[in-house]
Simulated assay, not measured.
Amino acid sequence: GHPPHVAACPPAHPIDPSRTGATAERVLRQLSRDRRTLALVLLLPPVLLLTLRLLFHRSPATFDRAGPALLGIFPLMTMFFVTSVAMLRERTSGTLERLLTTPVGRGDLLVGYGLAFAVIAAAQAALATALTVGPLGLTVRGSAALLFVAAILSSLLGTALGLWMSAFARTEFEAVQLIPAALIPQFMLCGILVPRHTMLPALDRLATVMPMTYVVDAMARLTTMRNVDRWLARDITIVTGCTLAALGLAAVTLRRRHP
């Protein structure tokens, strides 16, 4: 008899620079037409940091303590929200399915989206870092350039998490609900509200598996230490590793379709 028929999986396309570039250009073009989203991404973190500085205008030392952490947290949160909603629109509108029937592969799409949002993340990090270190007067003992790089890495982590988590939402309202579920526990345990060494041991251990903890630790070390030590290198490595892991999970869920 004939062997049972097995549906062939579509072949995996190697990443092509032209297809990747076209994807990134399309996403950037869409974002450029969405002025509210651009305002949210580019202006919200600087406005929040300015508000924080005004809140602690009588206590600059408090701003020096909390400012670096929030310089990493605010971009992460905004990029998570914007990326998850943007990717969800691609899924629910059918755009993603149509693209996946063309020679454009999952790698082209994922890298293209990543590149487009990396451009936005870099602009966001540049604005927030320049404002915080400049007019707001954040004390930085280490390298301001490395602080900028760390802020970009934080934005990229938010982007990667948003690309991945969008697979678990069917509507934009559900995407918004992902924010408290995915980010608020990290915010509470990352050490900005309560120093981690004063937490219950179980909560401290839980914080060590949350990527936002290492964003906060890296930003704090960059503003208080002049030298790059192994702990800072560890924080940067973990944040980068979590970003790559989230992108890998996003690639796995890229074909997921919602009814």
Rank of each mutant, 00 (worst) to 15 (best):
L183K: 02
L183W: 11
L54S: 03
A122G: 09
T213D: 09
L28S: 03
G114H: 06
V119T: 13
R255D: 14
G94S: 12
G72N: 06
T102H: 07
A220H: 15
P4F: 00
T132Q: 06
I236Q: 00
M188N: 02
E174S: 05
G114F: 15
M79V: 10
R53T: 01
D229P: 08
V140D: 03
G1M: 10
M87W: 11
L249Y: 03
L49Y: 01
P4Q: 01
V215Y: 04
G67C: 07
A160V: 10
T95M: 14
A128G: 04
G191K: 06
S166E: 14
A128W: 05
A167S: 15
D217M: 11
P3M: 15
H13Y: 13
L163W: 00
R234D: 10
F63C: 02
M77N: 12
E90W: 04
A245D: 05
L163D: 03
L249K: 01
T102Y: 06
L38T: 09
T83E: 06
A116H: 07
V215E: 05
L43H: 05
G142S: 12
T237G: 15
D204F: 04
A86G: 09
A69Q: 10
L52P: 02
R205M: 10
Y214M: 07
L163I: 04
G162D: 10
G67T: 05
G107C: 06
G137A: 03
V85E: 09
S84D: 11
T139I: 02
L28I: 06
V6C: 00
A61T: 01
A169K: 07
S32Y: 11
A246R: 07
L203I: 02
L115K: 00
L50I: 01
L222N: 10
P211C: 13
F168L: 14
L203W: 15
A7I: 06
E174P: 01
A86T: 15
D204T: 09
V149Y: 04
F173C: 00
G158K: 11
R221Y: 05
A118N: 04
Q177K: 02
L189E: 05
A150M: 14
F148C: 07
R91E: 10
G191E: 09
F168W: 14
V47F: 08
T95V: 13
P211S: 14
R29T: 15
M188R: 01
M212A: 08
G107H: 07
R33M: 14
L146V: 09
H258N: 11
S93I: 09
A122H: 03
L43D: 00
Y214P: 05
T20K: 00
V149C: 12
A39D: 04
N227I: 02
T223H: 03
A8D: 10
A22E: 13
G112S: 04
A150D: 09
R106Q: 09
P60N: 07
A145H: 06
H2Q: 04
A246K: 06
H197M: 11
L206I: 08
L40E: 04
P195A: 15
D108Q: 05
V111I: 13
T102R: 08
P68G: 13
A169P: 14
F173K: 04
H13E: 10
H57N: 03
L203G: 08
L42D: 06
I238Q: 03
V41T: 10
R196I: 12
T95S: 14
R106I: 07
L157W: 13
V85T: 15
A233D: 08
A145K: 01
P14C: 00
G241A: 15
L254H: 02
V176H: 01
A69L: 12
L178M: 12
V252K: 15
T208Y: 00
